[in-house]
């Protein structure tokens, strides 16, 4: 198993190199002059040039790139221009907020989409099938920021069920002691149930927004892949052997149908990471997405590049997990790997 992981990681290396190069080029192309920014508004031209030399920005691009890679290798993502803080520390403190939100959204959507897809596939042309089709098409058509706003309007403004969409916790609560960084888990670990409730209340709407957004591709893929598996020869064999409908659908069809669904999950996760940026903006969520947006608007390149790199690394890790999961489900892949 270890060698499989190693091989997979090795295959991800060229991709990561590509990511680093692209990130470097993108951030250097950002408008604005960091040297002028650091030197301050009153600085003379000479002072700006001095700062530029300090930052190494007067060197040709390849030299800058080597320096940049060197910094990366030492875990140095630079400092933010606007806050002055090291980017790495800021990302580290904000990442759990995004991760908690994204994961909850994904779990929520999987727990709705997969059963829905299965039901639709086992009864094609039925009401469930039509509902599945409408829900998924509508879900994928909703702009994620728009869903968020509608949810806020309905559940906060009209019904008053949800708290104000302002961050991870109501101002009256203070955050639990950091263990995992996930408020839901940390509050339970600390035994503070009211805190748990408060964190959950804040989390429900944004997570639901993400779930609605990611419902469609998962349900669609589940349905399509279940349909094709249910029509396959081995399912017919299972039926002809008198296995119960449950065994046929779950043990035989579903496990096979999961393979393409797992692949889709990787893509959905990528979508979610992107959608996160928008959702965090709508709900004033202090995650890495909103951090990156603020930095982008300010042409603050260190946080942007840190953010993009973090996202890419997370995505590579996720794909690794998916590949391994795939191997667990499908023996054919295991032999190949």
């Amino acid at each position: 198993m270890l060698s499989v992981i190693l091989k997979r990681l090795l295959l991800a290396v060229p991709t990561l190199i590509g990511v680093v190069v692209v990130t470097f080029l993108l951030t250097r192309a950002l408008p604005g002059d960091p040297a002028a920014y650091f030197a301050g508004p009153a600085a003379t031209k000479q002072a700006i040039e001095q700062v530029r030399a300090q930052l190494g920005l007067d060197k040709p691009l390849p030299v800058q790139f080597v320096r940049y890679v060197n910094d990366l290798a030492h875990g140095d993502l630079g400092n933010s221009l606007t806050t002055g803080q090291p980017v790495l520390a800021e990302l580290r403190s904000r990442l759990p907020a995004s991760a908690e939100l994204t994961l909850l959204g994904l779990i929520l959507s999987m727990s709705i989409a997969i059963p829905l897809g299965i039901l639709a596939a086992t009864k094609p042309g039925s009401i469930v099938d039509h509902v599945c089709r409408i829900v998924t098409t509508a879900g994928v058509s909703l702009p994620v920021f728009f869903t968020g706003l509608i949810l806020v309007y309905v559940f906060y403004y009209l019904l008053g069920w949800a708290p104000a969409p302002l961050g991870r916790l109501d101002v009256f609560f203070s955050a639990p002691r950091t263990v995992t960084g996930f408020y839901l888990i940390d509050s339970l670990l600390a035994g503070k149930f009211d805190l748990f409730r408060a964190a959950l209340a804040q989390l429900v709407l944004p997570a639901l927004t993400l779930a609605i957004f990611s419902l469609a591709p998962i349900a669609r893929m589940t349905r399509a892949s279940m349909l094709s598996v249910l029509a396959s020869d081995f399912v017919r064999t299972a039926r002809a052997s008198g296995l119960t409908r449950y065994t046929v659908v779950i043990t035989y069809a579903f496990r096979n149908a999961m393979l393409p669904v797992i692949t889709t999950l990787g893509m959905v996760f990528s979508f979610l990471l992107g959608a996160n940026v928008l959702v965090e903006k709508v709900f004033a969520w202090p995650g890495i997405g909103s951090y990156a947006v603020e930095a982008l608007i300010a042409s603050d390149f260190a946080p942007v590049q840190g953010f993009v790199l973090t996202m890419a690394v997370m995505y590579v890790i996720l794909n690794l997990i998916i590949d391994l999961l795939y191997g667990v489900v499908d023996p054919r892949v295991r032999i190949d790997a």
């Binding site: 590509g18 408008p31 979508f271 990471l273 990156a292 982008l296 942007v304 993009v308």
Partner: peptide
């Protein structure tokens, strides 16, 4: 693969920010 390694919306953000 390289493009896919970025969350797509994030990459689009980066490109527009960089190009203008």
């Amino acid at each position: 693969d390289t493009i896919m390694a970025f969350p797509l919306f994030v990459l689009a953000m980066g490109i527009v920010a960089a190009l203008g």
